[in-house]
Design a protein around this nucleic acid. Sequence first.
DNA 1: GGTAATCTTTACAACATCTTTATAAAAACG
DNA 2: CGTTTTTATAAAGATGTTGTAAAGATTACC
Lengths: 227, 227
Amino acid sequence: MENKETILIIDDELPIRRLLDITLGANGYNIILSVNGHEGLVDAATHNPALILLDLGLPDVDGQEILVQLREWYQKPIIILSVRNSEEDIVKALDNGANDYLTKPFRAGELMARIRAALRIVTKSDDNNLFEFGSLQIDTHNHVVKKNNDLVKLTATEYTLLVLMAQNAGRVLTHQYILKEVWGYGYVEQPQYLRVFIAQLRKKIEDEPSKPKYIITESGIGYRFSE
Amino acid sequence: MENKETILIIDDELPIRRLLDITLGANGYNIILSVNGHEGLVDAATHNPALILLDLGLPDVDGQEILVQLREWYQKPIIILSVRNSEEDIVKALDNGANDYLTKPFRAGELMARIRAALRIVTKSDDNNLFEFGSLQIDTHNHVVKKNNDLVKLTATEYTLLVLMAQNAGRVLTHQYILKEVWGYGYVEQPQYLRVFIAQLRKKIEDEPSKPKYIITESGIGYRFSE
DNA sequence: GGTAATCTTTACAACATCTTTATAAAAACG
DNA sequence: CGTTTTTATAAAGATGTTGTAAAGATTACC
């Protein structure tokens, strides 16, 4: 299992943390651990995880409050893990934007299956996994990019950026949006990053990087991948 | 509550059917009831419900089998309701494509919240704003303007101005109003700005900029976008 | 632990857009 | 019809945004 998808765990109970760390790690996920709500919010913004496991009983802030704050900008799945079993808590969490709710103690296998189910929804749109634009080919299934049938070597970040743009071909993406999607919400104010990586990408995929055909600049707004 | 979304219930237990029928109906959903697996498959195909509630213990076919068959073409949420509480069943159902799994007896409020959570994921997109005026297309969702299907390159300000005018097509907008909306309060006394940008826009979207079809001058008052 | 690759930051050059000015053209008005 | 007011257009200068190279910092990998 080579997922390499990152899961953020916001929970202060040591046994749970340890269990999740081992179980999720064994299933090929990258793990980030936060011990309280504030740390969790920061980690979510800086690491851009594919999914968040959130405990409601945190030492500093109520988990429901963290959930609400996360949902102001975080669109990916959030699964609640909690000892609280009242209908009120469950309904509130789900209506606050949680995708699922598991009561502790939970069964590890079930949690794994629920994580897979939650991630599947996001990844589902990937039945469209081969893009072709002129001499440029992007195969997201095999994680391969070719130009004139020659393999283009891209770093992880460059690849993520290219796929994001290609998936939204024809559409203008703002700097903020791209930064949020590729680097995480915490990087929204770093447009220079984006410029550097756009320049790198153009060097690798454009015939004339100074006269780009694929990645078009929309000055003052963002970039557009040309159809 | 006026959802009018259709939910298909595939379950043979009369008390459950009755309970769901009443609860879901009270929450504004349309209900379709199927008493066995085959009927459920047919109803799903003919009614294309927004969500399916599926019992695993059906009289004719195993619910897991129905789930697999549904998932061959049905992409919307499926929530399992079952008396079976083994981890094996839960994991299998989730991996077969179920979005959620509730064991009977369940709490009605929790089920409602889980239905809302499942439907929320699907219902998000599609505020697709598309204006069409003759050969001119303005797609505010993608931030793209086309003339005779050719992309028109606009600066950020030009675009804002055009969208403002198009959104108020047929109405006369005063200089002051446009200046306030596009540039802000401090620019209300700068009608020359507006003239410069209107001229730019006309050069880009009009066939004959000196005989404008779209952006009409209302001398002494402002401009009007012709319908 | 050392090396290579990648990411982050900095500085400045290149470019696009905005603002201002000047002048011509058109419309309004008596 | 001539005068005044309003509008259109081009172009130059000012400002802001983007592109690029390269050095320093960090991370990944052997």
